[in-house]
Nucleic acid binder design. Structure first.
Lengths: 158, 158
DNA sequence: CGGCATTGAGTTGTGCGCAACTCAATTGCG
DNA sequence: CGCAATTGAGTTGCGCACAACTCAATGCCG
């Protein structure tokens, strides 16, 4: 659509292009995950657990629902993950007194202290990518637009 | 590194920025996956299965190892996935006669025929993103560089 | 030629992501 | 007020990703 008629892409071309972009996004995500796995090993965190900790370090105590909004995750993923963080002694969970459906997650002293060791993580990652801040911001913006467009496109089908 | 000294970013800033870019990449990947899940439902394929089929549609018969190279996946992921594709009647597997360690995957008639129905997938995805070809190519290039940089950075630690 | 390292596929175990579901608490509406 | 609909956590089941492992086939080197 909206392409110049100079080179009409065939269906085959579209399939190949689709494979390339999907593969690129997939591979990039898994490559990032792989690097974080190495870097986070010292902290005893998985990559998704690190993301949850980032949210808690920034916002303090939060109900599970809010964490999910920040990370685009539902309780099916977060409940067991938070249980593992609780078992690791980093997070405490307790039902809200004002709304007993809601469960609040907050950092333990140990969980809060882990932040001091986590500050080196982004530096090591940034060093590995070789991307500068401008590039990171640009990629961030593009991915944000992509996600927004897709999220807007998916629900209508439901 | 290489930043102007006007605003020295604190550790906290780096952690927040890290969370933002990680989240963006993660969310984009999962948003893409979510859209493909919807679109691929008709074909009875998951997103990773679709990627494998794309490889087979393009290259024909391939040993598992080669598929893995294309998709950056190992046998731990591919073996059960291919078994499911085989159970679905789309793929056949047979040990190579010249090297009996190797297993070749090839399309069945049904698997090859599925391509005709798959050609609409990229169009529906592209329509949902609202991205034009130039933008897709640009994103593709950036993600490729990111993956290459990360893959170069990770193995050294092993 | 014999034996050892390497290679390719597969299995096992753990954690994540998501759909579909249950259950209790809360909201809202007649 | 009372009851149905909604909301928030949690559970279950399935598929994917990856580490660590097994096993057989191959390659290599003295």
């Amino acid at each position: 659509m909206t392409e110049k008629p100079t080179e009409p892409l065939t269906d085959q071309d579209f399939l190949r292009l689709d494979g390339q972009i999907c593969f690129a996004l997939n591979a990039a995500t898994r490559a990032v995950g792989g690097l974080y796995r190495v870097v986070l090993k010292d902290l005893g965190l998985t990559y998704p657990q690190y993301l949850v900790m980032l949210v808690l370090w920034e916002h303090g105590e939060l109900p599970v629902k809010q964490i999910g909004r920040h990370l685009r995750l539902d309780s099916g993923t977060l409940s067991p993950l938070l249980k593992r963080l609780e078992a690791a002694g980093l997070v405490a969970r307790e039902r809200s007194t004002e709304d007993e459906r809601s469960v609040h997650a907050r950092l333990t002293a140990e969980g809060a202290a882990l932040r001091d060791r986590a500050v080196e993580v982004p530096r090591r990652i940034a060093a590995a990518t070789g991307f500068d801040l401008a590039e990171i911001h640009d990629l961030h913006a593009r991915l944000g637009r992509l996600t927004a467009a897709l999220d807007a496109a998916v629900p209508p089908e439901a």
